[in-house]
Amino acid sequence: MSIHGEAAAVRPLTLAWVSRHLEVGERIVRTEALHGGITAEMQRLTIGTRDGETRDLVLRTFVNVEHAEDSLSRETGALTLLTGTGVPAPGLIAADLTAAHCEYPSLLMTHLTGRTVLDDEGLETRLPLLARQLVAIHALRPAERPRKYVTLTTADTVVTPKGTDGEGWAAAIDVIRKPAPPYEGRFLHRDFHPGNVLFDVPPPTRAGARITGVVDWASASWGPADLDVAHCSVNLALLHGPEWGLRFPEAYEEASGVLAATASERLYWLVRDGLAASEEVQLVSQPWREAGRTELTTRAVEERLDAYVIALMDTLS
């Protein structure tokens, strides 16, 4: 077996495990590291078939990740649920939740065409596509619900960036000290944002962009649609500017999505996920810089987060 590319780094036990899940006569002919992930190593495996053609798979490996078994269990459950729903998610091939066969917990799945698009250019066109895709996810009614959503911050763990509007942040933190508003449960991706959505973006002379895939379902859960909208909104605000974060809830409603009835309820969810970003600005901005958005330094992203949180408070409180 000849393995080329960066993933000559596919570990021996994992390589043997993958090979056991290939068709008779197939072999791995090339591997490539996929960049942009935060919690796991991602590798594209090109498989040579018996008829001389190739197909691609994706190997997701959780290396030294706390609660890897839980995350993989959620993801495999979500991918199983999504089969046949029309939501463009990877197809599950195999999972080793406890590293019984691999060096680390691992997931093998089909490869989706397309790429992530993090540039400002064309965002006006992509925003409604993101909104419509999220509405479609929330429309799913699984026979077995995934577990309840997990909040990503508390009033006591918020990290207030330096030089921010201290009074405004204090008011925002007070918002999430209150009990969560009542909500109608929906199937949530829980990490829906441009970095987890694949696009086909053709040349200007052809038809417009389209979504070809939604990936990273490790946080799939059950909860308020507002929470998924809030998570995408803060990511849009940090990637493209606060005004885009504010526009996404409107785009979601224009796509026939239903959000909380009152401004105070909407504010709770938007602020909760906005403040959660304060704890991981450095973590989320690094993959963006590696993808070419070199201007998104930790400080620049902190400034956008500050502006976004204050804008939420000014607009909805």
Results as ranks from 00 to 15, higher is better:
128 P>H: 10
150 V>R: 12
67 H>C: 09
203 P>W: 00
269 W>R: 12
292 G>I: 15
297 T>A: 06
13 L>E: 03
219 S>A: 13
260 A>M: 07
307 A>E: 11
153 T>C: 05
108 L>C: 12
291 A>Q: 06
205 T>E: 13
290 E>G: 04
156 D>A: 15
178 K>G: 12
198 L>R: 01
171 A>N: 06
222 W>Y: 07
11 R>S: 12
246 L>D: 01
124 E>I: 11
255 A>N: 09
101 H>G: 05
19 S>T: 11
300 A>V: 03
300 A>H: 02
168 G>F: 10
173 I>S: 15
78 A>S: 03
37 G>Y: 01
92 L>Q: 00
279 E>M: 15
78 A>K: 02
303 E>I: 05
154 T>Y: 01
34 L>A: 09
184 E>G: 11
28 I>D: 00
44 R>Q: 07
200 D>L: 13
94 A>K: 05
115 R>T: 09
114 G>K: 10
103 E>G: 08
63 V>N: 03
115 R>F: 06
51 D>E: 15
22 L>Y: 02
221 S>T: 02
300 A>T: 03
193 H>E: 07
258 V>M: 12
215 V>E: 01
182 P>H: 02
138 H>N: 10
186 R>A: 04
255 A>D: 04
291 A>P: 04
250 E>G: 04
160 T>G: 06
35 H>E: 08
267 L>G: 04
160 T>R: 08
180 A>F: 08
112 L>Y: 12
53 E>Y: 07
30 R>G: 02
